[in-house]
Write a protein that binds this DNA or RNA. Structure first.
Length: 773
DNA sequence: CAGTGAGCGAGCTTCCGCTTGACTT
């Protein structure tokens, strides 16, 4: 047994550190948090100082048992979890759960995984910082109180199984409010004028493009200006050159990596994290969940060496960046390659591309500025006071641009390049002038990565939760990620060329969206409800302001229980009031009157989502209901579309002597035949599908089911060997069992199946409490 | 998967943050 037991959070880290520490040290990992609030109920004693009721996480119990044994044999236990609020709490929970003797327990921290940093940390142990631990407990308790008191209100007042929380509800709010802005937006237009001029001087012939800063509001004004230009002369009024520079972006944090991987590689945030995790476990990059832009001394040294040898001394500039983001805890380094001399790695395409992105960004951050020269050329018009302006930019020294340029979310229209050499007073020939009708654009919708960027700005969520939060708000159906077709619109283009003015009307596409986040009806309804009754929690600054209080707890200036008490009093009162007095929120909207019955037609949210309703609920006669289809929404559905939903179920014909009925259910349109359901394909329209097409569907499903069955047993009809999506399996009653690799599925006898079932656990039924899925 | 919706009531759902595999029919 080793004399020293070191506990870190991540197993990959444990492996590396063990190599540095030698044989007297055994390094183990806690795999993150080991203990949390009991999953069921609030598990906080609000009457007694908000005492939390903790339990060891179910999937950590085995690991804790093993650690306990190792602790017995160890002389010193070193708690080396991360140096932030959560890391301090993990150490404290470990100390509690393992029953550590303070006399033989040391708390150490290090920011980088290098031999010197770790041996140095061992020289400077400290005790667990209980103030920091209490700040974490306050954070944890607050989140549980908010989540577990708000969610049940939604189950009662909106729809079962919904959720609300400090982070997710504000993330949804961002998307809902952006959508409202886009709806309220009315596009205006102006005519943008661009001139193309001919240059002919001692340096040769060239063209120069210049814009008119003034825009015209109407077609007539633009036309009038072109008329004025018809017989005008043009000459260079002034040539202005200004030096400029551009500096590299800091190395990656989780959030900026997600943004750039989305823009440059088209990765979703979860894809980025999965691939980054693979790189981390393979030892290729440093830790991928970080909010720090800090680079270790070792990294700075490696960057210098690499840049000087590949690009030359003049390209290197050592830089250390400062973290700007709200609430950053900086327990780790920035995300960087472990070895900066490897510009590429072995691996699959995604791993190679993400690695190269990280390498370029890191290297560029340690390179010199790009030196630019910006040129403005002002062009006089003999018949007008207006001036054309041509702008150009020349790179005098490329610096970091040799390696990497950060992308932006907005598309940049103007590419500024080199301008031909020109002198003041020089006359220019006119090639053409164009006035083009340009529309103003609505604010852009969020995609996953730009939502993460906004969340980080507001300080809501942490590097480890950005990706899970985005998946939660989609799973709850508050938000959908999808593509939407745009529209087309006409724009006018007026051209002056060869003394002639011509106007043409062209059409352009706009508003096309790809992989953007849209709010659903439920998302909008829940957001409006929460903003109305829980304004403070839904405030974009709520997290930032509670973080300030957590900091005060961490500094020992305030008691955590008192902070929570001050919050909980008014909050809980509001919860009770809302539960008692508020009406259900249904988001009901009157669409119009059904011409058939003369009754009102509504759309609203019910227990199973959005639905249409004919007739009033207060009336004697029971109203009729029909669920909205996928892609339809309360916001946009028309009366005609709503009425069509009531055309189902309808009988479309007979097959084998039984009716075929088309209906629309929870999982979309279907054909019902002999009590069996057959889903329509995406291309079939339930309103027009023919009996022939329905029969094809039925037959296809039947032959598919036949292939599914490998073996059936006459004596036990509840036992079958089946072909599934993941290969053959055994089905007994409702339980499924894996087939051992050394067995041939088709050759299994009934006895074999029973033996396999007896000796193995059924799949998929494993319910681990406290596990989010 | 399974084709519901008023209202009643049973029993269920739910938070954020730290870590990885196990698992999917």
């Amino acid at each position: 047994m080793s004399k020293n037991l070191v506990i870190v959070e991540s197993p990959a880290k444990a492996k590396t550190i063990e190599g540095y520490l030698g044989k007297d040290f055994l390094v183990k990992s806690s795999f993150g948090h080991v203990r949390d609030l009991v999953t069921k109920d609030l598990s906080i004693d609000v009457e007694n100082g908000f005492k939390p009721l903790y339990e060891i996480l179910p999937d950590k119990q085995k690991m804790i048992r093993e650690l306990r044994k190792m602790v017995e044999g160890a002389e010193v236990v070193w708690l080396a979890t991360d140096e932030d609020r959560e890391g301090e709490a993990i150490s404290w929970h470990l100390a509690e759960v393992l029953g550590l003797d303070p006399a033989k327990t040391r708390r150490i921290v290090f920011h980088e995984i290098t031999k010197s940093a770790i041996t140095e940390a061992i020289q400077k142990p400290r005790n667990i910082d209980l103030n920091l631990v209490n700040a974490q407990q306050a954070r944890r308790v607050l989140d549980r109180l908010v989540g577990f008191e708000l969610s049940p209100i939604l189950w009662k007042k909106v729809k079962p199984s919904l959720s609300a929380g400090r982070v997710q509800s504000v993330a949804v709010r961002l998307i809902v409010e952006r959508e409202e802005e886009i709806r309220a937006f009315t596009s205006t237009y102006a005519f943008k004028v661009t001139g193309l001029f001919d240059v002919e001087n001692e340096f040769g012939k060239a063209k120069i493009k210049a814009d008119l800063p003034k825009r015209f509001q109407t077609s007539e004004e633009a036309m009038k200006f072109l008329e004025i230009c018809k017989n005008a002369g043009f000459k260079v009024a002034e040539v202005e050159t200004k030096p400029g520079k551009r500096s590299p972006a800091p190395p990656f944090t989780t959030s900026t990596l997600q943004q750039e991987a989305s823009r440059k590689l088209g990765f979703s945030v979860s894809r980025t994290m999965t691939v980054a995790q693979q790189l981390y476990e393979a030892g290729k990059i440093t830790y991928m969940r970080t909010d720090s832009v800090h680079l270790s001394q070792m990294a700075l040294g490696m960057a210098k060496e690499e840049i000087e040898s590949v690009f030359g001394k003049e390209y290197h500039k050592s830089r250390q960046f400062a973290t700007k983001s709200k609430g950053a805890q900086e327990a780790h380094e920035a995300i960087r390659p472990t070895y900066l001399n490897n510009s590429t790695i072995e691996g699959d395409a995604a791993q190679r591309r993400l690695y190269e992105l990280i390498w370029k960004r890191t290297i560029a951050s340690q390179m010199t500025d790009a030196i630019l020269e910006k040129t403005n050329i002002y062009i006089d018009i003999s018949t007008s006071k207006e001036q054309f302006v041509a702008t150009g930019e020349v790179i005098k020294f490329d610096g970091f641009l040799k390696v990497y340029m950060e992308s932006t979310d907005e598309d940049v229209e103007n590419e500024e390049g080199l301008l031909p050499p020109l002198k003041k007073g020089e006359a220019l020939g006119l090639d053409e002038i164009q006035a083009v009708q340009k529309y103003s654009q609505a604010p852009p919708r969020y995609n996953e990565a730009s939502l993460v960027k906004k969340m980080e700005e507001l300080g809501i969520g942490r590097p480890s939760t950005y990706a899970p939060t985005i998946s939660t708000i989609q799973k709850r159906e508050y938000v959908v990620k999808e593509d939407r077709d745009g529209n087309t619109r006409d724009f006018e283009q007026i051209t002056l060329k060869g003394g002639q003015i011509k106007s043409v009307v062209k059409s352009e596409k706009f508003g096309f969206e790809k992989n953007k986040l849209f709010p659903t009806d439920i998302g909008e309804l829940v957001t409006r409800f929460l903003v109305q009754y829980f304004t403070d929690i839904m405030d974009y600054n709520f997290t930032a302001s509670v973080e300030k209080e957590f900091d005060e707890i961490a500094e020992g200036l305030k008691e955590w229980n008192q902070i929570i008490k001050d919050f909980y009093g008014p909050f809980h009162k509001k919860v009770t009031e809302t539960l008692e007095s508020r009406e259900k929120a249904k988001g009901e909207k009157l669409l119009g009157v059904d011409p058939g019955s003369g009754k009102n037609v509504y759309v609203k949210i019910g227990r199973f989502g959005a639905m249409a309703q004919i007739g009033d609920t207060e009336s004697e006669e029971k109203p009729r209901f029909a669920g909205l289809r996928k892609g339809q929404s309360i916001e946009s559905i028309s009366l005609e579309e709503a009425l069509k939903l009531f055309d189902f179920p309808r009988t479309i014909g007979e097959y084998e002597g039984e009716d075929m009925v088309v209906g629309i259910g929870r999982f979309g349109p279907y054909v019902l035949h002999m009590k069996k359901f057959y889903s329509l394909s995406k291309t079939d329209d339930p309103a027009t599908i023919t009996a022939e097409a329905a029969i094809v569907l039925i037959e296809e499903k039947r032959s598919g089911d036949a292939n599914r069955i490998i073996t059936e047993f006459a004596e036990r009809p509840d036992i079958k060997v089946l072909n599934g999506r993941f290969g053959p399996y055994i089905s007994i009653a409702k339980e499924n069992y894996k087939i051992p690799k050394d067995k041939t599925p088709a050759a299994l006898t009934l006895q074999d199946c029973l033996d396999i079932a007896k000796n193995s656990a059924p799949t998929g039924k494993k319910k681990v409490a406290g596990r989010r899925k």
